[in-house]
């Protein structure tokens, strides 16, 4: 318990470099412990109190606001280089309480409590009336879109069979009416063309992809994201991701890089 009866906390400016240092340690803590979705970045420091701690050190009691970025939680990109999800893509905010110990110049997180919530539909539509809103990940249309997309993906796979890891984001797009989903997949020890019982396939943990985005137009028309370079990650030999996903509507097909480096394509279509 950092609080000691009779002691008085030190007031510090929320934008003080020392406060910011503690807040950035807190944000790193979030991103190192999150197990799904996207990394968060610091948006605002709401409150700070600095309590003395016996026998030594100080405890920074912080309230911070964060914003979701576009970096998947497994993405090795430093969060400072990650793009913040804009309001037009239905931004997500995090609210966190932290206690961070500063001792001998080192910051250590003692306590963390965070919650996240999407921007209100009213606010999104105020900025952008045609923007798609986030949909629940268990929404029937979302689940259907993921199933169709993953089946199409595996049909095109000339190597490993891919399993769903998680649905990270989903939006209902008003025009044209479609469902937009982002999901992560992992390669398995099965060969796609030979799979009879997917339940018997074992995921290869080191082959989890970053989320691909897929828009399901109507009932069956799948539009994939384009293949884009991703930070190189160690890729053991073996299964390969399909490099040219099926696109039912050629007109809607995003153009692929003419000759992308092989290492850049290991995770398939990415945002």
């Amino acid at each position: 318990a950092p609080h000691i009866s009779g002691l008085v906390y030190r007031e510090l400016d929320c934008d003080d470099p020392e406060t910011e240092q503690a807040a950035l340690v807190a944000v790193d803590y979030i991103n190192n412990h999150v197990l799904q979705g996207y990394k968060h970045t610091l948006n605002q420091i709401d409150k700070v109190k600095v309590w003395p701690r016996r026998p030594m050190g100080e405890v920074f009691e912080l309230e911070i606001d964060t914003l979701e970025t576009k970096c998947y939680f497994l993405d090795p990109t430093p969060v400072a280089n990650c793009t913040v999800r804009p309001l037009t893509e239905h931004a997500v905010e995090g609210d966190c309480d932290f206690q961070v110990l500063k001792q001998d110049g080192q910051f250590t997180v003692l306590f963390a409590k965070c919650g996240s919530s999407p921007d209100s539909a009213e606010d999104v539509l105020k900025v952008c009336p045609q923007c798609p809103l986030l949909a629940p990940l268990n929404d029937t249309k979302v689940v259907h879109a993921v199933e169709v997309a993953l089946t199409a993906f595996n049909t095109q796979s000339n190597g490993s069979y891919f399993q769903l890891v998680e649905v990270s984001r989903a939006q209902h797009v008003p025009l044209p009416p479609s469902t937009y989903v982002e999901f992560a997949v992992t390669a398995t020890d099965c060969v796609a063309a030979e799979v009879t019982d997917p339940a018997k396939c074992n995921p290869l943990a080191e082959k989890v992809s970053r989320p691909a985005w897929v828009a399901l137009l109507g009932r069956r028309k799948v539009k994939w994201s384009s293949l884009q370079p991703v930070p190189p990650q160690p890729q053991p030999d073996g299964a390969e991701m399909p490099t040219t996903p099926s696109v039912a509507d050629p007109a809607a097909s995003p153009s692929l890089p003419a000759d992308p480096p092989a290492a850049a394509l290991v995770v398939g279509p990415v945002v």
Partner: peptide, 27 residues
């Protein structure tokens, strides 16, 4: 601040140390 009673003291800027600056946008 020390001032003569007859001389009005100019009000200084109000210090609002918290919350801090918004780095991106507020939702």
């Amino acid at each position: 601040t020390v001032a003569q009673p007859s001389v009005p003291v100019a009000a200084g800027p109000v210090v609002r140390p918290c919350p801090g600056r918004i780095r991106h946008f507020k939702i």
